[in-house]
């Protein structure tokens, strides 16, 4: 067969990489289109969803009365990036929503978050950057960290600078949360701080994952949280196989390629798009 007679006239290879869902999410964020009814919660959030949404909307109503410049950003099927103030970067994970209010009178920039977001906050001595979730208030002055609100818990993971966290339920405050520290606030308001060995939990934003002699079962769970895909491990031997390695800025197919070759196992997608891991 001669293929050359009908080579499709596509002018630029990069046009194939346009993701219209992602572009639509960006457009919605830029246009301030808010569709709260379309928020899709991950399965494990469902139990908490109604409570979180009601509590969130209640606070939203209060914010809008006293602070008119509220802007709502929603990320449904894709994570999106946005800039607030002049250079504070916020990455909003899938199935998440945040409302920003620039409250200049009292020198505060307030964010109300449902779901998960990574913040890279610019240093600004003139104002305080505050993030509220259902469970906590996080106060920052120039730092990078992740806030994840799921299943009643709020988890804050700091990658640079330092933050202060206050529990709504108990008014307990934890100060000087610095790089590598992770704070979990439970539904009863109890807070615990631990040190993390890596930032795999925020790989959805940093696109960097480190595994140190971890099982495939554990690795797949973390990859799924970072990349968002369906998978099934075919057999017990594969589940318990162990791997050490670092993946930096790689797409999921490249990651699977390395795992597949290192452990000598098959990783392939079935007709539904589910990744089948193992023989």
């Amino acid at each position: 067969m001669n293929h050359n007679n009908d080579i499709p006239p596509v002018s630029d290879r990069r046009l194939f990489d346009i993701d219209t869902d992602l572009e639509w999410a960006r457009f919605k964020a830029a246009a301030g289109i808010c569709e709260p009814k379309t928020i899709k919660f991950a399965r494990y959030w469902k139990a908490a969803a109604s409570i979180v949404l009601v509590a969130g909307l209640g606070l939203l109503g209060y914010n809008q009365l006293s602070k008119p410049k509220a802007e709502t950003i929603v990320a449904d099927s894709q994570a999106i990036e946005t800039t607030v103030e002049t250079s504070t970067q916020i990455s909003l994970n899938r199935n998440s929503k945040l409302t920003c209010t620039d409250n200049r009178k009292n020198g505060q920039f307030n964010v109300y978050l449902e779901g998960e977001a990574y913040f890279d906050v610019e240093k600004n001595p003139g104002r305080t950057f505050m993030i509220d979730t259902k469970g906590v208030t996080v106060t920052v002055r120039g730092t990078s960290f992740d806030v994840c609100e799921a299943g009643g818990n709020t988890t804050i993971t700091v990658t640079s600078g330092n933050v202060e966290v206050k529990s709504h339920a108990t008014d307990q405050t934890v100060q000087n949360l610095t790089r590598g520290k992770q704070l979990v606030c439970h539904p009863d308001g109890k807070m615990e701080v631990k040190t993390v060995d890596n930032f795999n939990c925020i790989a959805w934003k940093l696109h960097k994952l480190e595994f140190n002699d971890q099982t495939v079962e554990d690795i797949m769970r973390q990859l799924q949280a970072a990349y968002g895909f369906k998978y099934r491990i075919a057999d017990q031997a594969t589940k318990s196989a162990k791997l050490t390695g670092t993946f930096d800025q790689q797409d999921i197919k490249a990651v699977f390629n390395v795992i597949s070759q290192t452990l000598d196992i098959d990783i392939a997608q079935d007709a539904d798009g589910t990744w089948i891991v193992g023989k």
Partner: peptide, 8 residues
């Protein structure tokens, strides 16, 4: 719909 059909 218009956006998704025509963006590319």
């Amino acid at each position: 719909t218009v956006f998704k059909q025509n963006f590319v």
